[in-house]
Amino acid sequence: MNESIWYIFISASLVNNFVLAYFLGICPFLGVSGKMATATRMGAAVTFVMLISSMCAYGIHWGLEAINAPFLQLISYIVVIASTVQLVEMFIKKMSPALFRALGIFLPLITTNCAILGLALFQTAKGYGFVQSIVYALGAGAGFTLALVLIAGLREKLDFADVPWTVKGTVLTLLVAGILSLVFMGFSGLGSQ
């Protein structure tokens, strides 16, 4: 409960990285990690949605506690996330049509990105306060972006490598992700209080 802000941030972004340790948000991780530029912006979009939905989730949890209806939790969270994504979609379409095309189907699919719903559920389960929730969302977003950018960089290089046809595509990405995940295990020492 009284974990320091800094600890929450490091823990969410590195030690318990949402992609590489919790396996949340694997679909965009495999889908839009082909190019560095797209990966960075996707990371930013996801972080923004995370931030908004984390704040809303805090309010909703408080409200549902008050009316004693915890079984509505899941439904209300997903509705908030879907609306936030809709908002971001309209915003990006207006501001940068090129980015809108580059993200393609993966933009509306942020709704079904388990990292965001997972974040909302975890912060409720951990009983974080308002400020802690915001930091947790920022940390998780940073971790997601970091993983996406790392794998995008690796994949850009791998495009030029001569690999056997059997491992081309998803298999190679998964193998690289496995190695990245091993690397991130090195951070686990940071987490012990």
């Binding site: 590489l20 396996f23 059997t166 491992v167 998964l174 193998l175 496995g178 091993l182 295990m185």
Partner: peptide, 21 residues
Amino acid sequence: VMILPAGGFFTLALWLLFFNL
């Protein structure tokens, strides 16, 4: 390592490889 996250990625990669073959 197989029950840790990294093992999940490796095992899935190997199964996909098998199905590709």
